[in-house]
Amino acid sequence: MIQTWNERAHAALKGKTGMLLAWSFACALIVEVGAVIDPTLYGTEMGTSFEKGFVLLISGILSFMLYPVIIGYYWVLLETVREKDIQFTDLFLPMRRRYDKHVAATILLTVLQLLWTLLFLVPGIVKYFSYAFTYFILHDEPELSVRAAITKSRALTRGLKWDAFKLILPVVPVYLIGLTLFFRFDSVLFAALSLLIATALIRPLVVSRFAVMYEDARREYDEQWKSIREPDVAAAHVIQSS
């Protein structure tokens, strides 16, 4: 199954890898635009702790406000796996459709992920895979609330977390290199750039593989749900006819 998912993701990206990589870097730069106002990136020190905290707060708020473009990237990769036409402007669909909902999804997922990671590292990793389908679900079922989408993602990924880990394992070293450089660089600017580049490089591979997994998990889930519902519907018809 892992090999099949890899092959399908690779086939979906064929001929589009360069474009999707460029879009991934564009998304990363858009989301990190808030960091531009942080003078510590350029070796400049702020006067007081309050000023430092204020700048950090504004930077974080801007990142959260712009993060729906990453959700748009998830949607673009899902459409790519489904062999549909995509455009750069599709990245901004979550900003044009229920923007407040998608910002809320970003904040809630970040908080949940952070809390689980602070508890222990392993539960944090497990929850990362549990929430992996949330943005895809928000695309396919926009009527669902954010909490309902997260709950459904947990249901769809049940029993698949180890497979999901093995699926993205080949690209993990790239992220670890970026993370190592992040902690090794004395310059805040170069540290931030190293992690940004690593994340942008692996994003198309990770998201496309998750999209392929989601398609299969969603199909299996719907079939199971249908098999449960059909006897109930048949029984209801019998009761009504009698």
Rank of each mutant, 00 (worst) to 15 (best):
F165Y: 10
A148V: 07
A164P: 04
R147L: 10
S153N: 06
R154W: 11
K161E: 12
I137Y: 01
D140T: 05
L138H: 00
F165I: 12
K161C: 12
E143V: 09
E141P: 01
A164Q: 09
E141W: 01
A155D: 11
S153R: 02
E141V: 02
G159T: 14
L144C: 07
I168L: 07
E143I: 06
S153A: 10
P142G: 13
H139Q: 07
L144M: 10
L167K: 03
E141A: 06
R154H: 13
S145R: 08
P142T: 13
P142H: 13
R154V: 13
T157R: 03
A149Q: 00
K152P: 03
L138M: 10
L167R: 02
T157F: 06
I168A: 04
E141M: 04
A164W: 04
S145C: 09
I150Q: 00
A155V: 14
I137D: 01
K152S: 03
L156N: 05
G159D: 11
K166M: 15
A155Q: 14
S153F: 06
L160N: 07
T151A: 07
S153I: 08
L167N: 04
E143S: 11
S153V: 10
I137E: 01
D163P: 08
A164T: 11
V146D: 00
K166V: 15
I168N: 03
I150E: 01
K166Q: 14
D140F: 03
S153D: 03
R158I: 15
R158E: 14
T151D: 05
I137V: 11
S153H: 04
A164G: 12
L167E: 02
D140P: 02
A149Y: 00
L160Q: 11
R154N: 14
I168Y: 03
